[in-house]
Amino acid sequence: MIPLTYYLILSTIVFTIGLYGIMTQRNGVRLLMSVELMLNAANINLVAFSSHNNDMSGQVFTLFSIALAAAEAAIGFAILLSIYRMRDMIDVDNINLLRW
């Protein structure tokens, strides 16, 4: 059986990649992808603990959180789409209309 620590390190790596993406990327779609990576790192954690504590509810939670991620991605992409329609680009640096 794979030790729990391996799963946690894997999820930390995935999370860090997502974090790096958030910090460096300027393209809206890539940003959303990075956010998804971070969310899925949390999901890996949930499943790992669930399996190692022999408690199914963690895996059910993961299902829920994946479904919520789908909702979030749908809204995110819809917003990006309407921004693209308005401005012909999705570079987040230039979307500063709401800046004070």
Binding site: A71, I75, A78, S82
Partner: peptide, 29 residues
């Protein structure tokens, strides 16, 4: 089994959330 017994209320709530997100996404896009 868990989804449809112990977690049936969150499951149903989630379906409404998804529906809301779907409508919202269509409306925005």
């Amino acid at each position: 089994v868990l989804v449809f017994t112990q977690f049936v209320i969150p499951f149903e709530v989630l379906s409404i959330v998804l529906l809301g997100a779907l409508i919202g996404a269509i409306y925005i896009a």
